[in-house]
């Protein structure tokens, strides 16, 4: 426990998006995050994977303090991030920084790179020589010093994202939230950004909360992986274990859907399960297990009772009735031909 940098406990975020009726006005809520717990160890890359609407970005935004959770909380090295009301103390802001998905819109087009990097320095490192710091930051991310005077539009997509990383580093944080840092980039540029992030992590002993929908990328960067589906985590495991022994039916479906480049990778994909059905709207989450409508192993209990997290191996937890004790009756998967026909 002592080496956990971030502990998220039963985090919930419900957004009110409207009201029902005129007389009995009841709020209509979207349960964007609905009871998420995990912890990130010092120096590790914790991967959070999910499709759109799964709540992974909401978790990121709560972590950096853009939203207050509806309930539950987050601890940074044992200290409650939300203990002091709405305004988060500066020392917490300094420790947790974020890199957004689209560097085109996260960098102000009317500011030079110098101005962009200057702001966090002014706030978090007021006693340092800021020009020297900016040069140090640019050097750290392997960009030439004359980039200081450029505008974001003069940079390529990859370079913009590297500037966004430099901005996150400016406050000397210990945890960086990476919200799909390479999904707006071409694959030939992605490698440079990812390798930079890996090197910075080793040199500066950073911890990453790495959010992505790209499982192949996750396999290569994360130490541990969590899968989210409709506001809840379905499975958490060490990266190697996760890809060799995926247990939750949704994880298997996700893995089987990835387009791959070689036969070797093809063998790693669960072959019995194919993607079916639509992702339900987060406004109208199905009762019981939220995945039951798409699950090929669905049982009666899944439609009524929401499963709880159970440990199936060291560090491997799954939220599925198939793995709950006492052992559920052996589930017989529908033959793949019927699953295929349903698509």
């Amino acid at each position: 426990m002592s080496n956990d940098i971030l502990t998220v406990e039963n985090l919930k975020k419900h957004f009110v998006i409207g009201y029902t009726g005129l007389i009995h006005r009841e709020p209509i809520t979207v349960k964007a995050v609905d009871g998420v717990s995990f912890s990130i160890r010092e120096g590790e890359t914790f991967g959070l994977v999910g499709e759109s609407g799964s709540g992974k970005s909401t978790v990121a935004y709560i972590t950096v303090g853009m939203y207050r959770p509806t309930s539950g909380t987050i601890y940074l090295r044992g200290e409650d991030l939300f203990a002091q009301g709405d305004e988060r103390p500066l020392r917490f802001k300094k420790e947790i920084q974020i890199v957004y998905q689209d560097p085109g819109s996260s960098l102000n087009p009317r500011r030079t790179i110098k101005d962009i990097l200057d702001l966090p320095l002014r706030i978090h490192q007021p006693h340092k020589n800021r020009t020297l710091e900016i040069l140090r930051l640019l050097n750290e991310v392997e960009l030439p010093p004359d980039y200081m005077h450029k505008y974001p539009r003069q940079l390529s997509g990859g370079e913009k994202q590297i500037i966004a990383i430099a901005r996150a580093l400016a406050s000397d944080p210990s945890l960086i939230v990476l919200d799909e840092p390479t999904s707006a980039l071409d694959v030939s540029v992605q490698g440079k950004v990812i390798n930079l992030l890996i090197r910075l992590q080793q040199e500066l002993n950073l911890s990453y909360l790495f959010i992505t929908h790209d499982l192949s990328l996750m396999r290569n960067v994360a130490t541990r992986v969590a899968i989210m589906y409709l506001g809840k985590i379905c499975e958490v495991a060490d990266a190697a274990e996760f890809f060799q022994n995926p247990q939750h039916p949704y994880t298997q479906m996700l893995l089987s859907s990835i387009p791959v480049l070689s036969e070797e990778e093809e063998k790693l994909k669960p072959s019995k399960i194919h993607s079916i059905g639509e992702i339900p709207s987060p406004v109208n989450v199905p009762p019981g297990c939220s995945f039951h409508q798409r699950c090929p192993y669905v049982m009666d209990v899944c439609k009524v009772v929401d499963p709880v997290m159970v440990e199936t191996g060291p560090g491997h937890t799954v939220r599925c009735h198939l793995f709950e004790q006492p052992p559920a009756p052996a589930a017989v998967p529908e033959t793949s031909s019927t699953v295929e026909a349903a698509t």
Binding site: V187, S188, Q190, G191, I194, N195, I198, D214, L215, S216, L217, R219, N220, V221, A240, F243, L255, I258, V260, L261, S262, E264, E265, L268, K269
Partner: peptide, 10 residues
């Protein structure tokens, strides 16, 4: 440049 499901780094 494509990250592989079988691992091996980026």
């Amino acid at each position: 440049a494509v990250p592989r499901l079988s691992g091996g780094g980026v």
